[in-house]
Simulated scan of single mutants.
Amino acid sequence: MLAVMDTFIRASLISALRDVAEEHGVAVESLLSEAGLDRGALDHPSNELSFDSAAQLLEIAAERFGDPAFGITLAERDPTGATGLLGYVVSHAPSVREALQAMVKYSGLLIYPGSIEFREDTTSGRLTWLYPLKHNKRRVQFALFANALTMIRLKKLVGRDWMPLAVEVEHPELSCTNRLRRIYGPRVNYNARENVVVIDRYTLERANKGADPILYQILQETAEIKLQELAGRSDLVARTAHAITEVLSTGPPLLERVAAWMRMSPRSLQNRLAQHNTTFERVLSDTRRSLAERYLRDSDIPLTEIAFLLGFSEQSAFTRAARAWFGCPPSQLRKEGRRDTKGERTA
């Protein structure tokens, strides 16, 4: 059985969280630890954070700071370079249409694997995107953040007073109505199945006055190279995750056993993973996490047996890991999963 590959985001995307936390007199490391992330997760812009952990991190921050629209607060900081190479490609696209096309084409530089597309008809264009982990309810702030950031970037290209023809967002309507209206405009549909921005054809054809055609070409070439590097990383991580899954069926997922299954030395596997900015321990944790979520939501396997299947020596170790991964004990996640499934069947 292949392990489900997690979705990752670049740390640069939420780097402004450190400054916001300091303004509230809170050490960002405490928020990271509470979300089950490494205390140095935001230290380097190229660090990778699992989508689920990043979403939980923003929920924790919103609660700690008493800000129900924290996602907007974070997006409005939008520091230069936060969206990295993708942001620079978009900012130098010749037109709004080409900026949106670049946003879709190179989105993997910030979040991968992702689901974003841009389509046109005779009157307008639709930018549509989805977030992973449909069962995870604790992602309102991340959806709010990413949606607001998208709108802010569009307004930088078109003009601060521009408003789309329509907006659909997956998160519910919040109490901060004025802030939502300022970001989305008056025509917004909440609790939608996907996130959509509808843009009129005239706006799509508008030239980007700040574009540099030569720099745009150079940035595109650089982005293509980076995407190829990420594709290589994804392949190596996927093969390592598959090897871990296979090894788990016969015993503990030790580095030596996984490397042997992949027909390479432990040092070689570690070095190759390091070249792709990850570690064996991180891939092991992500693989266990994906399998744990599947077992808990889609099966009735006892918790003691799940712990064994994931290579934990004791159920207590599995429980501690689940709390770090999901923010709750495995028994609670199983109950929530069954409740969600029941709701989907009766809907």
Score class of each variant (00 low, 15 high):
20 V>F: 03
263 R>S: 15
191 N>I: 10
266 P>Y: 12
122 T>S: 03
84 G>R: 01
227 L>W: 02
248 L>F: 08
53 S>D: 04
24 H>L: 02
228 Q>R: 14
191 N>M: 15
12 S>T: 09
131 Y>I: 13
249 S>C: 05
235 D>I: 06
266 P>H: 13
16 A>V: 10
53 S>R: 03
233 R>A: 09
111 I>F: 01
261 W>C: 07
152 I>F: 01
318 F>P: 02
36 G>F: 11
317 A>K: 12
183 I>F: 02
129 W>Y: 14
124 S>M: 13
82 A>P: 01
197 V>T: 15
131 Y>V: 15
45 P>G: 11
292 A>N: 01
206 R>I: 00
52 D>N: 09
92 H>R: 15
74 L>N: 03
186 P>R: 10
70 F>Q: 03
344 E>K: 05
65 F>R: 00
304 T>G: 15
153 R>V: 00
64 R>Q: 13
227 L>P: 04
149 L>G: 03
220 Q>G: 11
298 D>Y: 15
221 E>V: 10
229 E>N: 05
67 D>L: 12
327 G>Y: 03
237 V>M: 11
296 L>T: 07
110 L>R: 03
37 L>W: 12
269 L>P: 09
221 E>F: 07
118 F>C: 08
218 I>E: 15
186 P>G: 14
201 R>N: 12
135 H>T: 13
253 P>R: 03
87 G>H: 07
324 A>Y: 05
21 A>P: 02
224 E>C: 08
122 T>H: 02
27 A>H: 10
323 R>S: 03
163 M>V: 12
97 R>N: 08
236 L>Y: 01
229 E>Y: 02
287 T>K: 05
119 R>V: 15
37 L>S: 09
280 F>A: 11
98 E>A: 04
116 I>D: 04
74 L>W: 07
199 I>N: 06
183 I>Y: 02
186 P>A: 11
159 G>D: 05
162 W>F: 11
36 G>P: 08
225 I>Y: 00
154 L>G: 01
325 W>P: 11
313 S>L: 07
48 E>G: 00
189 N>C: 07
321 A>I: 05
322 A>C: 13
39 R>T: 15
151 M>E: 02
102 A>S: 14
131 Y>D: 13
312 F>H: 09
304 T>L: 09
108 G>M: 01
112 Y>N: 11
74 L>R: 00
247 V>G: 14
199 I>Y: 09
17 L>M: 11
285 S>L: 08
208 N>H: 04
183 I>K: 05
39 R>D: 09
230 L>Q: 06
33 S>T: 15
196 V>C: 02
311 G>H: 04
242 H>Y: 05
64 R>E: 10
250 T>D: 13
290 S>E: 13
232 G>S: 09
225 I>F: 03
346 T>C: 00
261 W>K: 14
40 G>T: 12
41 A>G: 05
322 A>T: 11
52 D>W: 01
22 E>N: 10
130 L>S: 12
268 S>L: 10
72 I>H: 11
35 A>F: 09
296 L>P: 00
313 S>D: 11
210 G>S: 08
178 N>R: 08
28 V>Q: 12
139 R>C: 07
126 R>Y: 14
82 A>I: 00
66 G>A: 00
143 A>G: 09
14 I>M: 12
